[in-house]
């Protein structure tokens, strides 16, 4: 990837010599390999893409897109003009920001820690265990966590009371609510998230460690100068992807923790839209909300990708 720029400079001139068809013929083996994958995206992803039009219609399933009335930006206006839209958007952004701050680096840290563990059995066990929470649904996780944080029975609050402090109702206090979301997300996603980094660490050339040792580098230095640099490309890629999720709050998580006491800090786009759908079939409206979120996501990914290219040469494309 580092060499991308250098090689890229030579490519266009060759390309322009050959022209479109010439390129296809010259690289035919490569393009043949691409066919199954691209065909999949074309048929199953782009095929149904015309459904985005539903966002601009008052869609009735039985009438289909051809038969439903066009309403322009009506559903977008409805979303943006809602008195709660600003606060809901703000909550979504803040929670996502916290999650990127805490939950994004955590798997990397876990990966580094696992890499330093030399008891192979323990390492394997720890890895297997760490990814278990990924499989438990938020309903179950939230039940356990609410019990754990209960002001009357939860171990944390019993400890606080032993220390002579007032118990804290973490889940119902606006001050702590976002913290609860971030920590529970961390707990659930850290192990699963670290898999991709663990795979990258195995790609590190062992001779690099030996060379570093020769130079008298300690373990910290080896982590900082060998392991971490090897992870930079994948970290960049993951970060670009993560930046696209800023508006895609996790409905299952927030919904299971949210109470009216914490609406002001925890009500996010998906939970609010869910409440809007209680009354009516809202197919067009939800499509419009999704489209809005996805456009923002896409722009963010493009922007992050652009910045990543400018700063460190690693990027998605």
């Amino acid at each position: 990837m580092k060499t991308e720029k250098k090689k890229g400079a030579a490519a266009p001139s060759r390309k322009s010599h050959r022209g479109f068809l010439g390129n296809l013929v010259y690289y035919k083996e490569y393009y043949l390999m691409l066919i199954p994958g691209l065909l999949f995206f074309l048929v199953f992803c782009y095929g149904p893409m015309y459904g985005l039009a539903i966002a601009f219609q008052d869609y009735y399933p039985l009438k289909g897109i051809g038969g439903s009335a066009w309403v322009g930006f009506k559903h977008f206006k409805k979303l943006f003009s809602d008195p709660f839209f600003v606060s809901v958007l703000k909550n979504t952004l803040i929670i996502s920001f916290y999650k990127i701050l805490v939950c994004f680096p955590a798997p990397i840290l876990l990966c580094l820690a696992l890499n330093e563990i030399r008891h192979l059995r323990f390492k394997k066990l720890a890895q297997s265990v760490s990814y278990l929470p990924h499989f438990i649904s938020w309903v179950v996780v939230s039940g356990i966590i609410i019990e754990f944080l209960s002001p009357s029975r939860g171990p944390i609050n019993i400890l606080l009371q032993e220390l002579g402090l007032e118990p804290i109702f973490f889940v119902a206090e606006p001050r702590y609510f976002r913290g609860v979301l971030v920590i529970s997300d961390l707990w659930k996603s850290i192990g699963w998230g670290s898999i991709v980094y663990l795979a990258a660490v195995t790609g590190v050339d062992p001779t690099l460690y030996e060379a570093a040792e020769m130079d008298g580098a300690g373990r910290v230095k080896k982590i900082l100068h060998v392991t971490l640099p090897a992870l930079v490309p994948i970290i960049t890629v993951m970060f670009i992807m993560e930046s696209g999720k800023v508006l895609n709050d996790s409905f299952e998580q927030v919904y299971n923790f949210l109470t009216p006491s914490t609406y002001q800090v925890g009500d996010v786009i998906s939970t609010f839209v869910y409440r809007m759908g209680i009354q009516k079939m809202q197919y067009s409206f939800t499509t419009a909300v999704d489209l809005f979120k996805n456009i923002v996501s896409f722009i963010l990914v493009m922007a992050t990708n652009y910045m990543a290219r400018k700063t460190n040469d690693y990027a998605l494309w």
Binding site: Y27, C45, G51, G244
Partner: peptide, 25 residues
Amino acid sequence: TNLPYRKGIMMFVVFTMYFSGGMIP
């Protein structure tokens, strides 16, 4: 890195990660 139209194809793929036509289509 020397494959022509590579970046366009990547865009083609990345686009599908963010946009979908929905359940009905």
